[in-house]
Design a protein around this nucleic acid. Structure first.
Ligand code: FES
Ligand code: FES
Lengths: 146, 146
DNA sequence: TTTAATGTTGACAAAATTAGTCTGATTTCT
DNA sequence: AGAAATCAGACTAATTTTGTCAACATTAAA
């Protein structure tokens, strides 16, 4: 069970925007460079994020993307879902029923797992993650921003 | 993010054994029938379970499989891991470090998610699941065993 | 007004993983 | 001997994921 790169790359990219929140737009190329992700692939992901209203695009020369809301108002859950990542574990969990529910004793377990994952994702904002991240890097190299 | 059929089918199959625990061996064909899973595919899964000592095989005519331990001593976590299912979310979580950990702010999140999944799996025994299952079916059709 | 940088879109291709099947052997019971 | 089952490993098919590309649209700056 692994999150696909959609979710992993996408969240890292959005986090890059969160770190730079309030300092103007960031281009896909810059993110691709920093995060070592294909520029073309990121385009796909930002398409979804823009349609969902998470980010705003600034077109033209020196354009880029900006978060539409403050990082502490965006949860990891939103991002993951928008990127098309499903936290289903088993297909029949989101549905209210399942064709062979009578011979299946695993449903309650999958549901509990899904709930515990969702709980973590929903209570984690981008700001939380940025804070954690800064704590690590600062303790390592003495800080990089003024 | 989905559990592969290895984990889903495998756990259902083992649960089938757990329901019949103490009543002798169960053949793969019987499980395949009840759970609507390919007989050949199940063979693959039981191969792993046998090597890991979860089940014991009884060869020859009227053979089958039996749980090697009591259902309340086997956790869902064990089964899932033995079947080769990884609960990694991201590749670099099990490892103590990661090549681009410096530009990645998502690690703490993935770790917390993994821990919450593991917690659920480790605290759920086959017996727990059988109990849940019986509760449902009994309330539905008035019970099926004597 | 031109130019260059960037976003936008949809289609496509490559790679990896998962899922499922098959054949043949061995063992044990009747 | 014959039937019913496991055991082992190879093999294929299907699906999903990942990544790439080309053509176009929009805007800012020169
Ligand atoms: S297979 Fe659908 S609930 Fe288990
Ligand atoms: S990519 Fe390895 S820790 Fe995030």
């Amino acid at each position: 069970m692994k999150l696909s790169t959609k979710g992993r790359y996408g969240l890292r990219a959005v986090l890059d925007l969160a770190v730079n929140y309030g300092q103007g737009q960031v281009s896909i190329r810059a993110i691709a460079d920093r995060q070592k992700i294909s520029e073309y692939y990121l385009e796909q992901l930002f398409k979804k994020l823009r349609k969902a209203g998470i980010v705003q695009s600034i077109r033209g020369a020196h354009g880029g993307y900006v978060l539409n809301r403050s990082p502490d108002e965006i949860t990891a859950y939103e991002i993951i879902r928008i990127l098309g990542e499903t936290i289903e574990i088993s297909e029949c969990i989101e549905a209210t029923t399942c064709s062979n529910i009578d011979s299946c004793a695993t449903r309650p377990l999958w549901i509990r797992i899904k709930q515990s994952i969702d709980a973590v994702l929903k209570t984690t904002t981008l700001q939380d993650m940025v804070d954690d991240y800064k704590k690590i890097t600062i303790s390592k190299d003495g800080g990089q921003d003024e």
